[in-house]
Amino acid sequence: MSVQDDLETVEWDVSEDAHITVDNEQCITCEDKPCLHLCPAECFDYQEDQEGGIYFAYEPCVECGACMVFCANDPDKGAVSWSKAEGGKGVEFDFG
């Protein structure tokens, strides 16, 4: 099993608007890029052709808030802008 297989078990009602956005300019100077291993839904992917090497997808987000803490709230990082998904949208757990 990989986490991608596990994510197949999760349901979303995906919003048209991203609740989390990434300012890739801030990723250029980020050396360890903790988003790549700390996001439990692998929303962050390393892609060389992206500015700062980060491709971000909000769609598979499980809404844990980790990226707000390890990126948005870190004065040396701050690429992530974080808010809660709009009413009725986003992840839908059945067995929380």
Binding site: M1, A41, A66
Partner: peptide, 9 residues
């Protein structure tokens, strides 16, 4: 039979 995967702080 994994029914669901979750993440939380």
């Amino acid at each position: 039979a994994v029914e669901e995967y979750q993440g939380i702080l």
